[in-house]
Amino acid sequence: MGDPQEESVTPLKALQEWYASNCDGDWEHSFGIRIETSDNPGWILVVDLERTSLYGRFCDKEDSSVDGSWISMKSDGREFVAACDPCSLDRAVDSFVKFAQ
């Protein structure tokens, strides 16, 4: 069985840790993470990958379910962008955490 502390790491906590690990006194002045609302309605999560270990990593996925929830995630290697319905922000954050692993 794994370490109980590892099991309690939420996607939001993992996102915060990833951000903190990339803050070096310089990176955070030009790059970072943005969470915004969209007029779909929904959420948009943008994570800068420049000058991180994820720079150059690509993805392009969409997922929707019968209950009307949806999420779309893309990375051009420079930015990871996830867009989702109003009730799926947790899924968007989790999609970045999985992308980063």
Score class of each variant (00 low, 15 high):
74 K>V: 15
35 I>S: 04
46 V>E: 13
69 S>R: 15
7 E>G: 01
35 I>K: 01
79 E>A: 04
30 S>E: 12
56 G>L: 02
73 M>Y: 07
73 M>T: 14
60 D>C: 12
37 T>M: 08
96 F>M: 03
69 S>L: 02
17 E>H: 06
34 R>Q: 12
24 D>H: 09
100 A>D: 07
92 A>P: 03
31 F>K: 09
12 L>T: 13
96 F>Y: 08
41 P>L: 08
23 C>G: 05
10 T>D: 09
74 K>L: 11
20 A>D: 08
32 G>S: 09
60 D>R: 15
26 D>T: 12
78 R>A: 07
79 E>Q: 14
38 S>E: 15
58 F>W: 08
51 R>N: 13
19 Y>S: 07
61 K>V: 02
80 F>I: 03
15 L>A: 02
76 D>F: 03
31 F>Y: 15
100 A>E: 04
39 D>F: 02
62 E>S: 11
98 K>Y: 09
101 Q>D: 05
50 E>L: 04
55 Y>F: 14
57 R>S: 14
81 V>S: 08
89 L>A: 06
16 Q>A: 14
66 V>Y: 02
72 S>Y: 11
30 S>G: 04
72 S>N: 11
32 G>D: 09
81 V>A: 02
42 G>M: 12
33 I>S: 04
98 K>C: 07
70 W>F: 11
58 F>P: 00
54 L>Q: 14
90 D>Q: 12
28 E>K: 04
36 E>S: 15
15 L>V: 03
64 S>E: 14
62 E>C: 07
49 L>W: 11
82 A>F: 10
19 Y>P: 01
24 D>C: 11
78 R>S: 11
22 N>L: 04
23 C>P: 03
40 N>P: 01
55 Y>C: 13
98 K>T: 15
31 F>E: 12
68 G>V: 02
56 G>I: 00
71 I>T: 13
86 P>D: 06
62 E>N: 10
96 F>C: 03
52 T>G: 01
97 V>S: 00
42 G>Y: 15
50 E>T: 08
100 A>G: 10
27 W>V: 07
60 D>L: 13
85 D>A: 10
3 D>M: 07
62 E>P: 01
21 S>H: 07
14 A>F: 10
15 L>I: 03
71 I>E: 15
96 F>L: 07
29 H>P: 00
12 L>I: 05
10 T>H: 10
19 Y>H: 10
84 C>W: 11
57 R>F: 02
77 G>C: 03
